[in-house]
Simulated assay, not measured.
Amino acid sequence: MAAQAMMRKAAPCAMRQLKCITVDVTGTLIAYKGLLGDYYCKAAKAVGVPCPDYDQMHEGFKVAYTEMASKYPCFGQATKMSNRDWWRTCVRNSFREAGYDYSNEIFDHVFKRIYSMFGSTAPYMIYSDAQPFLRWARKQGIVVGVVSNAEYRYRDIILPTLGLNQGSEWDFGLFSGIVGIEKPDPRIFEIALKKAGGVAPEHALHIGDSLVKDYLPARELGMHAMLLDRFKSKEARVAREAGVPVFPDLSDAQNFIISWQEQVKRASMI
């Protein structure tokens, strides 16, 4: 009921000419290949030690990650914890939650493999509609920003290696591990609007896959917003029933935006 009330409060605003589009990353532009637990278990097996069940490992990671994000938000940015140390603690706690506690020497070998792997493109895939959509938007003269609860390696390594580059696919990026603010804090969208050149909220659109982290905070600020539902989630179904614009992919979102902007142009000529 609370979520539905928030969605009613954040109903779509009147259409305006778009000057800026911001996009989420994971689940919107890119995705993991398989389950995260698979990679942790593979790293353990590669150094010759037993590993928990893959699903058990995945659940252990979710508990450990949630605790670390609460104690040391934005990958330790506020407390000056290094990115590597943040992940080292998170990974160690993930294994412990799953029932395995390796010696320091063995864990060092396991962690090096995991940290290196997730600093590369090996665990990720780019959605086929991501690059065409971003390039299309920029070609229309729309400023494109990436807004993600991610650390610096997304900006410096992962996105560029996947073919999503600043200057060709996006104009600016806001990553929580760098700016020290993470969604659903609306302040990260305020920064995005400033980065876009002082664009007013009603001339900006945010696209993401989370109702709580993407749609609601963007709407709270007065931006347009829409959800992507690539996996037919229950959250997206409920949101759609409440009137939230939900699309299966960026291609459909693009078609909607084209129609939207044509309507705005026609209205301005009347």
Score class of each variant (00 low, 15 high):
Val47Thr: 04
Ser116Gln: 10
Ser103Cys: 03
Asp185Glu: 15
Asp209Met: 04
Met269Leu: 08
Glu105Asp: 14
Arg153Phe: 04
His109Cys: 15
Ala98Asp: 13
Gly180Phe: 04
Ser233Ile: 12
Cys51Val: 10
Ser259Gly: 13
Ala44Tyr: 13
Pro73Phe: 06
Ala218Arg: 02
Asn93Asp: 07
Pro184His: 00
Met15Val: 09
Ile188Asn: 03
Gln131Gly: 07
Phe133Asp: 12
Tyr152Asn: 02
Ala11Gly: 08
Ile178Trp: 05
Gly60Glu: 07
Ala225Leu: 13
Gly197Ile: 14
Ser128Gln: 13
Cys41Arg: 12
Ile258Trp: 08
Val238Lys: 12
Val246Lys: 00
Tyr54Asp: 04
Ile126Lys: 15
Pro186Phe: 04
Pro12Gln: 14
Trp87Pro: 12
Lys183His: 08
Glu151Thr: 07
Pro184Thr: 06
Asp108Thr: 01
Tyr102Trp: 11
Asp156His: 13
Tyr100Pro: 05
Val238Ile: 15
His203Phe: 01
Tyr154Phe: 15
Phe75Tyr: 15
Thr161Glu: 14
Lys42Ala: 12
Tyr127Pro: 08
Gln131Thr: 13
Phe61Lys: 12
Ser210Gln: 05
Arg16Glu: 06
Glu202Thr: 01
Leu35Phe: 09
Glu182Ser: 11
Met57Arg: 11
Glu169Ala: 11
Tyr124Pro: 10
Tyr32His: 08
Ala267Gln: 03
Gln140Cys: 14
Asp53Trp: 14
Gly197Glu: 07
Gly141Asp: 01
Met6His: 10
Phe172Thr: 03
Ala10Gly: 03
Gln254Tyr: 05
Ile188Met: 13
Glu262Gln: 08
Leu164Thr: 11
Cys51Glu: 12
Gly208His: 07
Gln166Cys: 09
Tyr127Ala: 14
Ala64Asp: 07
Cys41Lys: 14
Leu250Cys: 09
Thr161Gly: 02
Met6Arg: 15
Gly198Arg: 07
Ile126Asp: 08
Val264Gly: 02
Pro52Leu: 09
Leu211Cys: 01
Thr66Gly: 13
Glu262Gly: 07
Gln166Ala: 10
Gly99Ser: 11
Pro132Glu: 13
Val144Pro: 08
Cys20Lys: 11
Ala3Val: 14
Ala267Thr: 00
Leu250Ser: 01
Ala46Asp: 02
Ala196Arg: 00
Leu35Ser: 03
Gln166Tyr: 02
Gly34Asp: 12
